[in-house]
Design a protein around this nucleic acid. Structure first.
Lengths: 227, 227
DNA sequence: AAAAGTAATTATGAATTCAATATTCCTTTG
DNA sequence: CAAAGGAATATTGAATTCATAATTACTTTT
């Protein structure tokens, strides 16, 4: 059932440019020079330009006619909009998961959940986040909706580079854990409406938005004055 | 506030290929010949291939390495998945719209609603659908979430070509109209939770899926046997 | 010296060319 | 006569080339 991954050069290049953006080697608002990237990757302009077009449709860069491309500058509103959307998608994933998930899968998620609680008790932030993500991904996978998963991963991609801000107040954290307790209960009862509701309201997302205000691109970084 | 629409050649070509797919001039599973389309549009292969890459990202075609491209074959599950997702997005659009919508905008939608009822009373199916769509689009626009709107229109694009099936049983139709009455009421009260719920459950979508079974691409049309 | 205008340079947009892979058609063999 | 093998053809993948628009550097003028 493993998908045949087609390795076109353009896709390879697009992924690597995506990495550069994610890791901050290409900065928001920064002009992307074709020649520079061609030299860097050792490819000609043809596949590189194809990659840029794809990245533009994926929402990571924007194309300025006759003036090249630049990394999309994420505004606070933009990120907030994206999180709202992702919350809705998570809600749907929960509803659908309840319909399709197997006992074994639930058991797997229960295990992740318990592991996460352990990390919470030890206040191990990074492992907590990692398992947390695995839980959400497991539910998404159990949703049995390919289109949903595709969309979610696209949105996730877009905001990856600002998602590192992992500050977490005790108050928010304990609430997030409570949410997860409720999620787990709803999932084990296969209560699709309830799980959907919890996931839509799960404030994990809102927390991040709240803590993001300082991280988001300001208006005056690498941008060139445009007419 | 009107966006400067960039008119790259590749984007133009992508749109026109999209039209060909929508109108059934390129059939699902059909092999897309680059040369043929180049001649048709009078462009070279460079912008055409860029267009194909973009269309693949948008989910309208699929690229087979070294074997060209072909129109995505929509399965019933695929369409169902897409509708589920769109319903979730509509729900979100309703929730958000309640927060941001102005009295004037509500009045506008009320007017559309009354017009739609008139078409329903006269059993004018096409005008009914048209105004119906306008209502949903107005709510979406009032959501004030650009990312949401972008995603929705992409999904909409994908299934456009099977969305023509406009059969409608009396029973379903009257239920859809009732849904709309409730929507209108929720919107005028700005009850975001309620409107969200109604839109998620609005069976307009499910109707179409139900009537689609016969329209969807079968497994044996234009496809070439692949190893 | 600052601003405006113009030439030179550079970067992008698109077509063409070259290389590699797949497909077709024909021949050969069991 | 069917199936397998191989040459010829066509198609795709990627680099190069040509054309056009934008940017920069320089000159001129006030």
């Amino acid at each position: 059932m493993t998908k045949i991954l087609q390795r076109n050069l353009y896709r390879e290049v697009a992924d690597r440019i995506g990495d550069l953006i994610e890791h901050g080697e290409l900065l928001p608002g920064e002009r992307i020079s074709e020649k520079q990237l061609c030299d860097r990757f050792g490819v000609s302009r043809t596949p590189l330009r194809e990659a840029l077009k794809v990245l533009a449709t994926e929402g990571l860069i924007e194309l300025l006619p006759n003036r090249g491309a630049r990394v999309v500058r994420l505004t606070l509103k933009n990120v907030k909009d994206t999180y709202d959307l992702m919350a809705a998608l998570e809600g749907l994933s929960g509803e659908l998961a309840c319909q399709y998930i197997s006992d074994a899968e639930i058991a797997g998620i229960r295990h992740l959940h318990d592991t996460m609680l352990e990390h919470y008790r030890n206040r191990d932030l990074m492992p907590y986040f990692q398992v947390n993500r695995q839980i959400h991904e497991s539910i998404l996978a159990a949703s049995n909706n390919d289109v949903l998963q595709e969309m979610y991963s696209n949105l996730s991609q877009r905001i990856k580079r600002v998602r590192y801000s992992k500050k977490m107040t005790e108050r928010y954290w304990s609430q997030a854990v409570k949410d997860h307790e409720n999620m787990m209960a709803a999932l084990e009862k296969r209560d699709s409406q309830l799980l959907g509701q919890i996931l839509r309201d799960h404030l994990c997302n809102k927390i991040e938005v709240a803590t993001l205000a300082g991280v988001i691109d300001t208006e005056d970084d690498k941008s060139v004055a445009n007419s």
